[in-house]
Design a binder for these strands. Structure first.
Lengths: 356, 356
DNA sequence: CTGAAAGCGCTTACAG
DNA sequence: CTGAAAGCGCTTACAG
């Protein structure tokens, strides 16, 4: 049951490989090949279950109908949800995906890009960990079609699709303020050069200022990605015992989980003792006790649009680069106390309280 | 900055492509190429940042250093965790992964296998949804290296790596019995031909019998994968109101989440009104209220071993097929009531109760 | 020590 | 209407 090739069909029919190729690529009519011959070719192809060898096709055509996807970690549901929606769109369009998890390490990422390009991918979708502009600029200058997701590189004009991190964070901070929490701590995670983190911090600061409060840098803590639990304990103890904050805003879902676990361990009640909120909603936050107020990112939309933008870029490499920023939404749950109405006119999604 | 080829290097150095290829593939010494020439080639290759075109290499060598991964859904953390551990192992060994989500649909799966093979993958890792033996048998007979994960096809000798579904379910049922629940319902999900579901049901039944109880088929409900919420509501209402069961054992994490949500909505208290337990532990179950007693699968181990077995099969296609069944573990949490000790001598992992 | 040549399976100008 | 030929970039027997 060896796979059939063009040659097999050509030999069996006594015609040339060229002819078979033409017919099977629907060039038969254009090249004026007789209907009868075309039918013979197609019938035999079907009978032999012929499918073109994509590797040979790639080599010859210079494209592979494959894209590379580099995210921080495929096992983080934020990325796997995006991966799924990219996959769906890609499959529709005949594209396959190779994925790689960079672990937020720029060296890994550089190597992975190289590997994917050597394998002839037609384009890349990246949640990049690069700090410098160099690598992304090179990629763009080398005319590799690519789309950034989640983060972008300031100062380099590229395609990107991401959520409005500033607005999401601004809105959440305003919500916390409206609940009567004036001392709001915020925890971000290294690598802190990421635009996600920078803009979430900026949104937080501006919301405070707009509320007439000054920013206290002691309330902004950075948690090391490689040592979350240890840093979390140090940070929360300082914030709760010394700074006596009213609430803590965690800037991604991993931080929130680590914080939640710790607060329960040390018997801090939420929201009675401290309110908490999270950027980046996950299913767990609906079911946890208490359920967690958070900023939702449109993951499916990010993936879908990222692929669409990439596809356009692949089909026309000279196309103007496209920047898409999607709105973030708040989900108000229990972790900041109960509220019957939102004090400001932003988009707020109310959810049934599951933990009666 | 066009990519350098062997030809570029050969031309610049005034040697043949053959020589360059040999040197760069570390055949220089074996073929007796002078150290000096070797150095010139290697230096220039480095300078031009030469990397072999993997597509050409694949075509010529008949292998691609790529494997295909077909799972039900990459956005389900059960599969994305496995994907991550496969990825890590694959990367170590110079392999890349193309993934596809079959949605448990055999037609999708057949098409995806075909696509991946046309793209020249060296092997496949599949959480197969096939009901019949035919497709998997064909794959095996075509000498395609592959490893099944999570489920296998009875009656077809293949490589597989999975958890002991029978034992996990048996132990959990015994645990429920030991907690004083005699009327235990069990919910499985379509497609119910999967060995996972069959063996979990078998473990449940045997545990009952070994406890001197007879199996009541009214307590075994099948939930349609395509209509989980509707079926769940119908099933739970019958089980709770008519059958008055003491506990419900959900056979995968999606079912548990749907069940949990529904029970809260209709104000059924866990475990006071009904105990619940889950097969397939996820992070959410540690944080939910109440936290959920469940059967843990060693996801990382499954992924790691699956790749290792696949690699061996790729390197030696005549190798004896390998079957690996890993032990399942219970995590006892709050959803079945509190217990200070386990009534039987199985491996039980105790966890700190997070929801004091 | 080194090179010319074939071939992996395809597509596509070119020629008739 | 149809076919011979070149070429994508590589590897590898074979020859000298």
């Amino acid at each position: 049951m060896k796979k059939a090739s063009l040659k097999d069909i050509a030999n069996q029919l006594g015609v040339s490989i060229t002819l078979v190729s033409l017919v099977l690529n629907d060039q038969g009519d254009a090249k004026g090949i007789s209907a009868k011959t075309q039918k013979r070719v197609k019938d035999l192809a079907k009978k032999l279950n012929y499918k073109p060898n994509q590797v040979a096709r790639s080599l010859r055509m210079g494209n592979s109908k494959t894209i590379g996807l580099i995210i921080a970690d495929i096992s983080n549901v934020f990325y796997s949800a995006i991966a799924k929606s990219i996959e769906d769109k890609a499959f529709e369009n005949g594209y396959n995906i190779m994925f790689m998890s960079s672990e937020e390490n720029p060296d890994n990422e550089a190597e992975m890009i190289r590997i994917l390009l050597d394998r002839g991918v037609d384009g890349l979708i990246l949640s990049t960990s690069f700090k410098e502009r160099k690598e992304i600029r090179q990629l763009r200058d080398a005319k590799v079609p690519f789309v950034l997701i989640d983060r972008y590189i300031p100062g380099v004009k590229t395609n990107y699709v991401l959520v409005d991190n500033y607005q999401g964070s601004f809105d959440m901070t305003k919500h916390l303020l409206s609940m009567g929490n004036n001392k709001i701590a915020v925890l971000n995670v290294t690598p802190s050069h990421l635009t996600t983190m920078k803009q979430r911090i900026a949104g937080y600061k501006d919301a405070l200022r707009m509320h007439g409060l000054s920013v206290n840098n002691k309330l902004i803590k950075e948690i090391s990605h490689d040592n979350i639990n240890y840093c979390m304990e140090k940070a929360l103890k300082t914030l709760l015992l010394e700074e006596k904050v009213h609430s803590v805003f965690f800037l991604n879902n991993k931080l929130t989980i680590a914080g939640l676990e710790l607060l329960k361990k040390i018997n801090i009640r939420i929201p009675q003792d401290v309110s908490i909120a999270s950027f980046d909603d996950i299913e767990l936050f609906r079911f946890s006790y208490p359920s967690i107020t958070s900023v939702i990112q449109p993951k499916e939309e990010i993936g879908k649009l990222a692929f669409e933008v990439l596809l356009k870029q692949i089909n026309d490499p000279e196309l103007e680069k496209q920047q898409i920023v999607l709105p973030a939404k708040l989900v108000i749950r229990e972790s900041c106390g109960s509220t019957m109405h939102s004090a400001f006119g932003m988009s707020v999604l109310k959810q049934n309280n599951l933990n009666v």
